[in-house]
Structure formats: structure tokens, C-alpha cells
Design a protein around this nucleic acid. Structure first.
Lengths: 195, 195
DNA sequence: CTTTGAATTGAACAATTGTTCAGATAGGCA
DNA sequence: TGCCTATCTGAACAATTGTTCAATTCAAAG
């Protein structure tokens, strides 16, 4: 019988996912054992199966949730007027959001090949949905002659790769603040699209 | 006694590395078994240990060789006069070289976390050496006022991420030829650095 | 208190792992 | 021809894997 107040499972479930993300990001999906995940949470391996039917589904859920959160977050951002403003907002949002959850980003980007085919399709769908947000900004700006982009599809991929790349080198407390990084990257993107 | 003509081992060794790259790129290092690699070559698992002391060393050798080849290739490219020309050559070289060996690139970029600490250091060294090639071009262009880059270090990382990103979506025989992709990306990079 | 049901343990399972090695094979040199 | 050495097989190893499940714990409701 479902209780209204949070049951123990409502607490342990997220803890399992959090532990799994952390370990999979560090060692990779195939290299992480169910026993390691359980130990990180402080339970026995068998108890994990109260929260996921199997290891593969656990991976899928982690990636799906990450991309769903990402798409929800970008859709609830305020929609600005001009394509240039919207592109600036997208770039800064992307860097900010991804730097806040590096482990999830790592898993979602690196573990695609460990998904079973059906799961892979569902994840790719979510990924394309996010890319379409950027693509529509670029196309609108191109139409309005605010941008001079040789190919909108390629520009979409190029910008996302460039922005996500920040996660590979950025360290909090390093030479540059996050805000400064956002501004510098936006500067490069703006020029790349000819705005 | 080492023979001058190629022994059988001189042939099988490269076959083992080739099979390993292919399988590791597809399934990930931890998910690939020595038996799978052996089967791909057409030998038994035990025979692999004539060509590598262990699985970890095999991974390291694959990544090290890839980065060494990359560094050798970039260093033997003709050195052009102006920073703009050199940057154009670098961008087109990077795309061309990486598209020609996608499996090696995939392994070298995705399996860093499966390297033992000592091996990791050696690989990172090679990677930085390559990045330094691009960084020196950007700094020269900045000095000569050919470029207007807010931060050379960030521009280096941004450009490499952007260019390597081509490997994630490009398919031979697709909408765009490789030469066209090279030109479009160079166009975006050129504007991003203000040239 | 007792009852109830969810939460968890701990042992067990068949399968698979990287690695070793004694023995078989085979191809070129004497 | 016969020998030698590089190459390889096939079985074996201890350890570890994802997963299952009967038995146990525990917290809250009656």
C-alpha cells in the first residue's frame, strides 16, 4: 500500500542511482559491479534488485532521467526575443547545466554503446530533442539574417561538441570562474555563427 | 634469434591490435574479453599472451600508438607561413586524420579511465603534446594580431572538441563529402578566432 | 503487546573472467 | 632427413560476475 509520506524505498532508490552514476562515471558501466554499487549505498547486492530489475535497466534509467531533466530544464528557460539572445542563453545554460552534474553527463555521453538496441533508440530520441532546440535557434537566426551559417546541422553539432567539451577540462577553483568561461565560449560561438 | 624477414608474429601482432581496437571501440574495454579478441583474430585466448603481457598493457599500447602516430603525422605536415594558413591546415588535417581511424580515436578518447595511473600519465603527456601544436598556432596568430581570441587555452580546447566531434556523426556517403565538412568547419573556426 | 508488510541479509547458482602452462604442431635450417 | 624454435592449443585455475531467494529484521499500525 503506497504511503503518502516518503517510504524508505523513496529515499534509497535515489541513493542507488546516485551511487551508480558516480561509480559508472569513474570506472565505466561494464567495470562497475552490482556489489560495488551496493557497497557505496551501504547495502548488500541483493537489495539492489528492490530498486531495479537488472543492471541494464539501471543504466537506461540513469541516462533517460538525465536527458529528461535536461530537456525539461531547457524548456522552462525563459524564451528571449531575438535569435542572438536565445543563442547566448542556450550556450550559457548548456555550460552551466552540464558543469553542475558532470558525472551524469559523462555517463550519458560515454555509455551509449552499453545500451541494448531498444534502449539506445529511446535515448537517441531524447538526445535529438535537445539538439533540435539549438538547431531551431540557428535556423531562426539564419532566416532573419542575424547569422551567417554555412550549414545549420553542422553548426548544431559543432556548438554542442564545443560546449560539452568544457566538462573535460574545467575545474572549480581553477584559473577562470564559470561565468567567465560562459562568456568566453559565447564569444567564440557568436563569432562562429557570424553574429 | 630475430629474423630480418617478417616472422609470423610480426603479422599476427598487428592483427591482434587491430582486432582489439575494433572490439574495444564497439563494446568498451571492460566489456571485451580476451577470448573475444582471440576469436576475432582466429586464435585461442592463450596465444594472445605471446603478443601482450596482459590486457591492461594491450590497452595502453593501443592508445599510445594512436597518439604517437597522430603526433608524428602532425609534425610531418608542411609548415605554412601565416598563422591563418597554419590553422586552416591544422583543422583540415585533424578532421581528415580522425575520420580515417574512428575506432582508434574512440578508444583513445573513451578509455582513459581504464588506464592504470602510471599509464594514464604517459597518455596524457602525448595528448598535451598534440594540443600544444594547436595552442602555438593560436598564440602566434594572437601575437601577430591575425586572431582576436579572448583566451588561447580555452580556444584550443574548444576547437579540438569541435573538430573531434565530427567523428560522432559523420558517415561516409552521407549528405556531405569529407572535403565539404572540412571547409565548413574551417569556416566556423576561422570566424570563432576572429580571422 | 501482536500483526503485517516492506526492507534487507547472506548464502547460493551457473557462467564467465584473465591468466598460466604442459603439450601438440609446424615450418624453415642443418 | 631430422632438429629446433616459434607458434599455438586446450584444459585448467581461482576469482568474480549478475541474479535469485528463503530466512530475517525492523518499523509502524492495530
Amino acid at each position: 500500500m503506497a504511503r503518502k509520506t516518503g517510504s524508505h524505498a523513496d529515499i534509497t532508490g535515489p541513493l542507488v542511482r546516485q551511487a551508480a552514476i558516480k561509480l559508472i562515471a569513474r570506472h565505466g558501466f561494464a567495470a562497475v559491479t552490482m556489489r560495488q554499487i551496493a557497497a557505496e549505498v551501504g547495502i548488500q547486492a541483493g537489495a539492489l534488485y528492490l530498486y531495479t530489475p537488472d543492471k541494464q535497466t539501471l543504466l537506461f534509467d540513469l541516462m533517460f532521467e538525465h536527458l529528461e531533466d535536461l530537456n525539461n530544464a531547457i524548456l522552462t528557460e525563459p524564451v528571449l526575443k531575438t535569435p542572438v539572445e536565445r543563442l547566448e542563453a542556450f550556450c550559457k545554460f548548456h555550460i552551466r547545466y552540464h558543469l553542475k552534474r558532470p558525472a551524469s553527463v559523462f555517463v550519458a555521453n560515454m555509455e551509449l554503446r552499453n545500451l541494448e538496441p531498444d534502449n539506445f533508440v529511446l535515448i537517441e530520441e531524447k538526445r535529438h530533442q535537445y539538439e533540435a532546440c539549438l538547431a531551431s535557434i540557428l535556423e531562426a537566426g539564419q532566416m532573419a539574417k542575424d547569422f551567417k551559417i554555412p550549414d545549420c546541422k553542422l553548426a548544431t553539432m559543432a556548438i554542442i561538441a564545443m560546449l560539452t567539451g568544457v566538462n573535460t577540462w574545467y575545474q572549480e577553483g581553477g584559473r577562470l570562474s564559470q561565468e567567465r568561461v560562459e562568456r568566453i565560449y559565447w564569444n567564440m560561438v557568436r563569432r562562429a555563427v557570424g553574429a
